[in-house]
């Protein structure tokens, strides 16, 4: 047990002593809040031009998380850097010669990063919600409305889970370049395209980000296509499934392959 505490301490030192990892967290916060605020402001001024259908399914909670589609990329970058930099720098060999128990090493790294991301994610989620609602003015909602608190806490969970997913994938790919090259286009483009094209939408619904972001919607049909076969928690559960799969794959690779 004392051993685990030491590894946790060490991982904390690693995270806090590198500027790039901290910058990515800061970027996730700024981008999410800033972009959401911008979209909320535009929505507020252009609401009168919305069609009746759009007005009927308008989801003031979900719209205040709009910036997260970009902000999550910074979170993914954080997850990739924390894990894959060990490999690209060769630090992994020092780390693993000091902690030959690879499972412990991985668990501690994930725990430290997850704790940090959870704090930043929750902070981001709540602030982007409040800023967004303030800018929406009369259209806004409040934490007291049914489902809204769930959605805001869910936003923080979503950011945490997407980072965990990135870390699991990075443990498999073991290279920041490879991990960025696969994760970024996937979440920035492919997932959105699959979700928008009607032929592939049913598949796209089960991708981690598409399913997970359901937790942030409050009004049914608020997200494009209200025909999803799962609810907010069901969606989050699908995302958790993806995360667990990625982490197990990462663990197996770390365990089996030579460092």
């Amino acid at each position: 047990m004392a051993h685990t505490t030491r590894v946790l301490q060490s991982e904390w030192t690693k995270v806090r002593s590198v500027r790039s990892t901290l910058w990515t967290l800061f970027a996730a916060f700024i981008v999410t809040v800033g972009l959401s605020a911008l979209i909320c402001a535009f929505t507020n001024s252009g609401y009168d031009d919305f069609s009746a259908e759009e007005k009927a399914t308008f989801d003031p909670t979900f719209i205040s998380f709009a910036g997260m589609t970009l902000g999550q990329l910074a979170m993914i970058a954080f997850g990739v850097l924390v894990v894959a930099n060990e490999y690209s720098t060769g630090m992994i060999r020092s780390s693993l010669s000091a902690v030959p128990q690879r499972g412990t090493f991985m668990a501690c790294k994930l725990l430290v990063a997850t704790a940090l991301v959870l704090v930043v994610g929750m902070l981001t989620s709540f602030i982007t919600f409040f800023v967004g609602q303030a800018l929406l003015g009369d259209l806004g909602t409040s934490l007291g409305e049914p489902g809204v608190t769930r959605a805001v806490i869910g936003g923080g969970l979503y950011m945490t889970l997407i980072t965990l997913f990135a870390m699991g994938v990075s443990f498999v790919l073991r290279s920041p370049l490879l991990a960025f090259g696969i994760l970024m286009p996937f979440f920035f483009l492919i997932s959105n395209i699959l979700g928008s094209v009607s032929a592939t939408r049913n598949v796209g619904h089960y991708l981690p980000d598409q399913a997970g972001s359901m937790i942030m919607s409050v009004v049914e049909g608020g997200m494009e296509g209200g025909d999803r076969p799962y609810g907010p928690w069901g969606g989050l559960l699908i995302m958790v499934g993806w995360v667990i799969a990625a982490l197990i794959a990462g663990y197996l690779v770390l365990k089996k392959r030579d460092a």
Binding site: A2, H3, R6, V7, S10, E11, T13, S17, A98
Partner: peptide, 12 residues
């Protein structure tokens, strides 16, 4: 220093 510190903490 932080590099060595992270390694030192690993080993207690």
């Amino acid at each position: 220093r932080n590099h060595l510190l992270s390694l030192a903490q690993l080993s207690g």
